[in-house]
Design a protein around this nucleic acid. Structure first.
Length: 235
DNA sequence: GCGACAG
DNA sequence: ATCTTGTCGC
């Protein structure tokens, strides 16, 4: 498995080739093993900075309590290019993953899985590299279209790209914009949607990625304050 | 050629 | 993604 830094030092053209090569590794199946721990990952950064803040949280599915969290700082080695997000964010998520004591049974990512122009979004990529079940939970659309959603929370409509269904638009909160759920790896759409529903509370985003989001922003702001204090000392 | 474009 | 306070609505 390609997992060292060198493998991420690519040009955008090479990155696309990697996606074509790795997408055949994606396996779609029902989340077999009973899910006890659900993970969520997110990445944050400051404008004009290449420093990344990444977190993974692990929740107990039965209580939705956070049982473990890991936060890491890293440096981006790839720009944000639509369709190539994983080459920017995946290395730091893998670093955080390696520090986890309790690996979750499934990991939810802030981005697309199969709902991607080459059917290999962030969730697919990380699933394959980590050899772990993953689910994509994006807040906006990269590829595909869908019919209007009914108003009630829990409503879902197929997300279509041409003739194939690549995911669902899921309204997790009444009268609020949907999130886009798609399969990453070692999961199928029904079990993915089911898990998102079971981990969603009163907010738009499911708890795993929401908690990860809160953590990375906390870490990023801690660093901002720290840097400002350093500057004042030098003055 | 034009518009769209996860985070 | 991030820069940002109050504010309209369920």
């Amino acid at each position: 498995m390609p997992r060292n830094l060198h493998d991420w030092n690519l040009t955008p053209t090479e990155a696309v080739a990697v996606q074509h090569r790795l997408r055949s590794k994606v396996r779609i199946k029902s989340l077999s093993r009973r899910v006890r721990f659900v993970g969520g990952a997110d990445v944050s950064f400051n404008r004009f900075s290449d420093k990344l803040y990444t977190a993974i949280v692990v929740l107990d599915l039965s209580t939705l309590e956070v049982i473990e969290s890991v936060r890491v700082r890293s440096v981006a080695r790839f720009p944000y290019v639509p369709g190539l997000l994983s080459f920017r964010e995946a290395p730091s998520v893998i670093a955080a993953w390696d520090h986890l004591q309790q690996k979750p049974d499934v990991l939810m990512l802030d981005g697309q899985g199969l709902a991607h122009p080459r059917r290999f979004g962030l969730a697919c990529h990380l699933g394959v590299l980590l050899d772990t079940p993953t689910i994509g939970c994006a807040k906006s659309l990269l590829t595909g279209i869908h019919e209007e959603l009914p108003t009630p929370a829990g409503s879902a409509v197929p997300l279509m790209d041409r003739d194939e269904q690549v995911g669902v638009a899921l309204r997790t909160k009444r009268n609020v914009a949907p999130i886009y759920v798609s399969v990453g790896h070692l999961a199928d759409l029904p079990s993915a949607v089911d898990l998102v529903r079971r981990t969603t509370g009163k907010y738009r985003q499911p708890e795993p990625t929401r908690q990860a989001h809160l953590l990375v922003n906390q870490l990023r702001r801690e660093d901002l304050i720290r840097n400002q204090k350093q500057r004042n000392k030098q003055k």
